[in-house]
């Protein structure tokens, strides 16, 4: 059971990493979602697996599930949800401003890149 979960987490990480490396913002955001799902799955694996619910009513059961990973995953999901919503709003803003979904290079970087090429050109000519 946990081997399958582990494999799923690995696939999620692989696909997520591929998507993050794309230039399209929408793909990057989906990739981020997949990666955090993978991380959440791994946290679930850190627990004890299926067992009696960890609610103590009178006598204590011999095998209770570990509630901590679930609490952590819940917190992590909420945080990722909030940031993904923010990112989507940013992506929309970026699309409205530039008319494209692709991420541009930094302006200063482009300027310095041009400087670099300008330095090289005379040498090429010579």
């Amino acid at each position: 059971m946990s081997l399958i979960t582990l494999a799923v987490a690995a696939i999620l990480f692989a696909v997520g990493t591929y998507l993050i490396l794309q230039r399209m913002l929408s793909r990057v955001i989906i990739g981020l979602g997949l990666i955090s799902h993978g991380a959440n799955l791994l946290i679930m694996l850190a627990g004890t697996g299926p067992a009696t619910p960890p609610v103590v009513t009178g006598e204590i059961a011999p095998t209770v599930a570990d509630p901590l990973p679930q609490a952590m995953v819940l917190t992590a999901i909420v945080i990722t949800f909030g940031i993904t919503a923010f990112l989507l709003a940013l992506a929309l803003r970026s699309y409205l401003l530039t008319g494209t979904d692709a991420v541009e290079d930094d302006i200063e970087d482009r300027r310095i890149g041009r400087l670099d090429r300008a330095d090289e050109e005379p040498e090429v000519a010579a």
Binding site: I20, L32, S36, L42, A76, L87, L90, R93, V103, D106
Partner: peptide
């Protein structure tokens, strides 16, 4: 928007690795 985008994405990747 462009600068924040790369900042958020990098930090979100770091947060996933932190998890």
């Amino acid at each position: 928007v462009r600068a924040t985008m790369s900042y958020v994405v990098i930090n979100l990747v770091a947060s996933a690795l932190f998890l």
